[in-house]
Design a protein around this nucleic acid. Sequence first.
DNA 1: GTTAATAATTGGAACGTTCCAATTCTGTCA
DNA 2: TGACAGAATTGGAACGTTCCAATTATTAAC
Lengths: 348, 348
Amino acid sequence: MGKGRVTVIDIAKAAGVSKSTVSLVLQASPLVNEITRGKVNAVMRELGYVYNRGAANLRQANARSKIIGIVVNDLTNSFFAELAVGVDTVVQSAGFVQFLSNTSESIDRQREVIASMREHGVSGLIVSPARGTEAIDMKPLVAAGIPVVLVVRSVPGAKVSSLVSDNHAGTSAAVEHLTSLGHRRIAFVGGFPDTAVFDERLSGYREAMSQTKEGFKEELVISSAPSRAGGVEAIGQGMSMAEQPTAAVCFNDAVAFGVCDGLRARRIEPGRDFAVVGFDNVIEAKTAVPALTTISVDPQGIGQRAAQMLLKQINAGKPEAEQAVSAVRLIVRESCGAADNNPGRRLA
Amino acid sequence: MGKGRVTVIDIAKAAGVSKSTVSLVLQASPLVNEITRGKVNAVMRELGYVYNRGAANLRQANARSKIIGIVVNDLTNSFFAELAVGVDTVVQSAGFVQFLSNTSESIDRQREVIASMREHGVSGLIVSPARGTEAIDMKPLVAAGIPVVLVVRSVPGAKVSSLVSDNHAGTSAAVEHLTSLGHRRIAFVGGFPDTAVFDERLSGYREAMSQTKEGFKEELVISSAPSRAGGVEAIGQGMSMAEQPTAAVCFNDAVAFGVCDGLRARRIEPGRDFAVVGFDNVIEAKTAVPALTTISVDPQGIGQRAAQMLLKQINAGKPEAEQAVSAVRLIVRESCGAADNNPGRRLA
DNA sequence: GTTAATAATTGGAACGTTCCAATTCTGTCA
DNA sequence: TGACAGAATTGGAACGTTCCAATTATTAAC
């Protein structure tokens, strides 16, 4: 037992059949007699046989392995951990396993990781690309016919599938909610203008604003780093305008927390004197004070859906790129002033 | 280019050498002439060669693959996400990749996942076992000579390595801190008595208490589900005692939050009228109100260390089981009343 | 009892790599 | 020039599986 692994040939010998028959049993082929199947299975259990997928995989050059790769840009962000769980559930029930790797936003690391996954023969890839990923980075993958689903961030020009959350609808809903509370000067705060996600979120804001009496005003868009510090700085800028905003739709939750900090520094209480809406619904949003009104994006759902898209492509022969959008929803909490007794009235 | 993958033989043909030479280049062997090496590398780049680890792996039956598996019981818990990141950093720089799977505390799922990983030929496994895992579940792995490092939870009787955090020292430090603040009736709250982690945390509490003037009192140990709801229930029980406790060391942070909820429901303000200490330092601990005093366990560090232990075993021929303990530290925040101006005095 | 059809089984080749032993090439020295 | 050492290269066998075509066993039909 100790020396050498037990192979299909050992099983064949012990069960008194040929290796071909054992192979058929392994694949649950209907060609093999029930009683033979039983015997073979018994012997396999007895000898502690473990299937060698590497070898199998080598033979069937056409059909690919039962591995899918998932690479994320920041696993410490619980958003991506949830996403990975979503992927895992569907992928696992399809008999696949997942390779997971973290790039920490490094494009070099991302290249290495993807190369390594190819060497291991993944049949498909789910990628949340590191910042700065270009269409050309995806090129070798599509050339090799490996299905790819991009999540969260899309890469303009890449001929692969993508699944991003409905950023446009999210900020749009935020604006509508704020106007329904009586706000008219609503700022869009935070984020770097050169990313696709920023464009989409801004465009939702712009569209909703242009349907208000006030209309869209360029001056109310204040970009900054997409961080807490960025939020502080941006709101400082906003509140120094002649005609101050009374509400802010923020690029993400981190910015929104920064905005709250900045407001307090000016003796303005977020949720009471000023309405703040975030984006992402990070875990702290619920427990922060005031609890943050934000846009929730269901990372686990995205993971599941991305996995389904990927499996579909793997099963279809030719990978057919497909663009999808995942719904978002507004979570109303305290920071917009709507959750208290006298919603928004005094803010207008 | 489209049809069939490019193999070592294609490279050999194109470079005018034999496949053996190409193989040597692949392994960076010093036997091959510099200029040949250059040519071969150039051709590989040109034809877009990707190494087939499956095939390589098949041939070298002795040396194992460059894959390590990591299975966790709850990836949505950010603790484990951090742990996975820690593993990833060290494993990746050693040229390995990681399979990651989530068991959601299901022992069946865990069995499947481990089987699947074996089929893929992992060279080692890092496992945070699902509740109820027994030594026998690890048996086939040690029989096959596959190194395993158990993390977070140990499995009594399993002949594999383990790395757990120093639960004993953690609760012990918590008790000492509370007594230094003047507390004498300190309860131990939450957790199910049948787990190893519970035993360790309780024993740290017991030891520290028995060194106080009061001594250890069985009545002050109140177990419950290790959840927020469990905490609420347990503290209710605690506060209905004739002689009420003035402080609680909780099984984990979730319980601690529940204890705070339960106290407030009784008009007792945690951090001012009663001291609460958690365990784990989950991400919300910092932002909660009051900010939670707790024991921090550095999940990323545990991941790194576990990976190092595993690699050591993989590189050594024979896997030598080794038990290790990871240090913890007390993070003092507001919930124990020590962080305000008049620490603890009024509580005694 | 022969033939045809169907069910079940089988040996060998192939997948892409590495290893081994053997071979060829280069230069050096007597 | 021949012999020899060392450097560089090479052809085949092997790893554990699957696939194909071929074979054998079983049953049905006349």
